[in-house]
């Protein structure tokens, strides 16, 4: 059994979500004496690979070359599909980040199969693999058997476990794939620096913040915790926050280890998008707000008093 894991990196740094996917692949391979091949594509792949030689791969393949430098991810997916075919891989893994979802779906398309997308668990059942994935933004859990060959699976960030193993061998290849679409520019700004679905801590705000400027309170708290800022649909629709910050069924489904909901009452579609977070803190002045039904810990009170106090208490213990 061979498992290929597509590894995402930016600015030379490998994403921790990719290392989780690699760890899960290694754990699965060890129960079936399989081999794990990590693949990194694009400029800087070699350098990024050197930072993860002990992260669980038996082999690492880096693919660099002129054609990938300004190509859209189409070309990367073509390279990954070619490698999967050349290696006769029985499984393909990636982390379900926004780019990861796109790469793995295109790769699956090239191989004529579907992706078991955004999985939270993978297990053997006889000689087949069974997966579980949240659907309807977590209002339901779908259990499926993967019957395609190869099995193509993306793992939800914060669900896999990183591992440390013996050093992998690294081989380099030159890219041959190209894409019709080219990246021709980059506009700084607008989108958040940290992808919400990958954040370990999210501080999220709703209508209770009263005006857009007050999100500075949450920005500051999120910075202190090394987290990202999220928002409810109401404030995104009102234009207070970019849509990329929106948590919920019509925005992003998130599963951080800590979700702090500030001034969010908790509409069904919002609860659906965040209730798989490990620990949920709700701060709201309305004790009857639905958000308290999913909260691990709640404080009933005025957020404009609670948040500054929370920040100063946290500063005291974290420094």
């Amino acid at each position: 059994m061979k498992i290929i894991v597509w590894i995402e990196f930016s600015h030379g740094k490998v994403k921790s979500a990719s290392l989780e996917a690699l760890g899960s692949a290694r754990t699965l391979a060890e129960s079936a004496s399989g081999e794990v091949i990590a693949v990194l594509c694009g400029p800087g792949a070699g350098q990024a690979a050197s930072s993860m030689v002990t992260a669980g791969a038996h082999r690492i393949v880096t693919i660099e070359g002129e054609s990938l430098s300004n190509s859209h991810v189409d070309a990367i997916a073509t390279e990954v599909a070619q490698l999967a075919t050349a290696e006769s891989a029985s499984m393909l893994f990636a982390s379900a980040t926004s780019v990861g979802k796109e790469v793995i779906a295109l790769t699956a398309g090239s191989l004529g199969t579907a992706v078991a997308a955004d999985c939270i668990s993978i297990s053997h059942e006889g000689d087949a693999y069974c997966i579980e994935r949240p659907v309807y933004a977590g209002k339901a859990i779908l259990r499926q058997k993967v019957v395609s060959d190869p099995a193509v699976i993306s793992l939800r960030p914060n669900y896999g476990k990183q591992v440390e193993r013996e050093a992998a061998t690294v081989t380099d290849q030159q890219s041959t794939a190209d894409s019709v679409l080219k990246r021709t520019g980059f506009i700084e700004g607008s989108a958040a620096k940290m992808e919400l679905t990958e954040a370990e801590i999210i501080v999220s705000g709703g209508r209770g913040l009263k005006k857009p400027e007050n999100f500075a309170l949450l920005e500051s708290l999120a910075d202190l915790l090394g987290g990202a800022v999220g928002a409810s649909r109401v404030v995104v629709d009102a234009g207070w926050r970019p849509h990329s910050d929106q948590v919920g069924q019509t925005g992003k489904t998130v599963s951080p280890k800590l979700y702090i909901a500030v001034g969010i009452s908790g509409a069904i579609q919002h609860l659906a998008g965040m209730s798989s977070s490990r620990t949920i803190v709700a701060i709201n002045k309305d004790a009857a707000a639905p958000i308290f039904q999913v909260a691990t810990y709640g404080i009933v009170g005025d957020l404009f008093e609670v948040i500054p106090r929370l920040e100063s208490e946290l500063k005291a213990v974290l420094q």
């Binding site: 506009i187 700004g189 970019p242």
Partner: peptide, 14 residues
């Protein structure tokens, strides 16, 4: 095309 990625928007043409 403009698409949102971490830190900004990527421009793609073809």
């Amino acid at each position: 095309i403009e698409r949102e990625v971490e830190g900004g928007r990527e421009v793609i043409e073809g």
